[in-house]
Design a protein around this nucleic acid. Sequence first.
DNA 1: TATTTGTTATACTTATAATAACACAGATGG
DNA 2: CCATCTGTGTTATTATAAGTATAACAAATA
Lengths: 130, 130
Amino acid sequence: MYIEIDFNSEEAFYIQLRNQIIIGIARNQYQEGDSLPSVRQLADSVGINMHTVNKAYSVLKQEGFIRLDRRKGAVIALNEDKLQAMEELQKNLQVVLARAVCKGVSEEEVHQMVSHVFLEMKENEEFGHV
Amino acid sequence: MYIEIDFNSEEAFYIQLRNQIIIGIARNQYQEGDSLPSVRQLADSVGINMHTVNKAYSVLKQEGFIRLDRRKGAVIALNEDKLQAMEELQKNLQVVLARAVCKGVSEEEVHQMVSHVFLEMKENEEFGHV
DNA sequence: TATTTGTTATACTTATAATAACACAGATGG
DNA sequence: CCATCTGTGTTATTATAAGTATAACAAATA
């Protein structure tokens, strides 16, 4: 999986990492029990500090996507708290969809975009990106 | 429209304000040409600093939701750059939906949630919240 | 000229990121 | 079997940037 940092983005580095890793899990590029790269390895490969990767991993742990092990490093471990996930989804969609609606995007277009994003997720299952 | 700050939230105050105002616009509680409260007035009513409201307004201007006028204050003025809005929507959905999928939410459930959020938006059109 | 608007200057606090030193687990090799 | 080397994440410290607040300012209008 290709993780990379956009140094021009306004998003904090650790947020960029967190998001890309979550997208990778959703695409099955990482599966339950797999280890992520070590903090040093990932820090080197994307060109940022080890501690920043550590922060990303801490957040992923806190949010229930991985567990941290002194030996094995960061291991995918999903707590499937669906109820909480649904509440979070609703809150996120309220903002994201409101932004789109204000700019003239229709409900149908949103549904199409959702389907499209799901297709992309399924495309990359098992063996990645063509 | 009821704007309020969650002082326990991790979200920056100005982001909370921005999001609530955007949701208000999407619900037609604010319409093109309407004025938002003045920075002092809103700051007072929600219990934060004037400058924080100013920051929220600056961001809303920068993102194309309002224009700022020394006389009339902050006025709803949407730049409907739909293409850009669609790109932003896609990026946002990639993260938001990935988070949900990892926690076991299905594509169908996402579509249902989207419909639900749209219903809420339409419910509150013209004359607010029941 | 008094009031209302957003704006700018300044300072304080918290968040983000980097450097460095640490502690624990396991593998290597003498 | 013990020493040591390498690999993990962790903690301490510091520097820079973002967020928030206080105060003074400038423009418009009644």
